[in-house]
Design a binder for these strands. Structure first.
Ligand SMILES: [Zn+2]
Ligand SMILES: [Zn+2]
Ligand SMILES: [Zn+2]
Ligand SMILES: [Zn+2]
Lengths: 147, 147
DNA sequence: TCAGTAGTTGATATCAAGTATCAATTACTG
DNA sequence: CAGTAATTGATACTTGATATCAACTACTGA
């Protein structure tokens, strides 16, 4: 079994949840996706698992920290496997590919903002929008070659 | 007329949109709110304006940059009047109050991340979650006084 | 001033994401 | 293996948001 899937299953077990066929299908599908996904995508990919169960399992994984839930302004949130503890995301504006990154300077700056901001800081979130290398490559070749 | 409302109306006019009674109701309501709001809140506050029109007007204002649209992980996005050009938001986790801030260090760090990140950076977003001063004050007094 | 036209409105229907219900099923315990 | 509590998933529902389109209204310029 893939280390990612083990991690997801462990996250469920650690919450005292039972190991069931439905949950295994969900975790192995997430592991195979190997990319960010929406809840509806999972439902479509797993017609043999009920929507309620898909949503419930995702919620468990998010609550346990094994999955990140990314807000998407126009549309359903996306989920991606959390590979390191605290991190932020890159999102390709063209294809939606999601990456993780972590940079100490960012965290240091956050701490320095405490003076500037009214109230107590309890957390933060950050997304960097990019055009990913695949999409850059695509627009360099093909696309405009008709002129 | 309030400068904020003038700004909103101008944003609509600049897009070649007509000045109508419905749109005036929406802009003056936003100006009076003086706080972040959801589309549904606006609809409730303006039963005399159709839902479609409320949503359409908000979209125009967001597209023109006069309003910020903030993703809220569990629920409808919130909107707040954009008071300065590029900025980020503080969100109180207790009461939902939204503030704006701008800090040059944050922007400088963003630029420095270009080396770390695969692909071209085209933008970023950042939210700082806080407990605002009002909520801090509330939990200091009242609340636990019963013991 | 007013008719023509193009933009606007809003009731209604529809869509999409997500949650609540609850009887039937299944995983664990001893 | 029986008993119990957790889990499932079909169904119905809720909420946020968009599509439709006939009626209406703001602008134009004759
Ligand atoms: Zn891409
Ligand atoms: Zn961080
Ligand atoms: Zn607050
Ligand atoms: Zn910034």
């Amino acid at each position: 079994m893939d280390p990612v899937e083990i991690k997801l299953i462990t996250a469920l077990e650690d919450r005292g949840l039972r190991k069931t066929a439905a949950r295994s299908l969900v975790t192995s599908r997430i592991e195979n996706a190997n990319d960010a996904f929406t809840a509806e995508q999972l439902c479509r990919d797993l017609p043999e698992v009920g929507r309620a169960t898909v949503y419930r399992t995702i919620r468990h994984l998010v609550d346990s920290g094994a999955l990140c839930k990314l807000p998407i302004l126009d549309g359903a949130p996306m989920y991606s496997v959390a590979r390191v503890e605290h991190h932020h995301h890159t999102i390709c504006s063209k294809c939606g590919a999601v990456g993780e990154f972590r940079h100490s300077t960012v965290e240091r700056v956050m701490r320095s903002l405490e003076k500037e901001i009214d109230g107590d800081i309890v957390g933060h979130r950050m997304e960097i929008f990019i055009t990913c290398n695949q999409c850059l490559a695509k627009s360099d070749t093909g696309a405009n070659s008709a002129v």
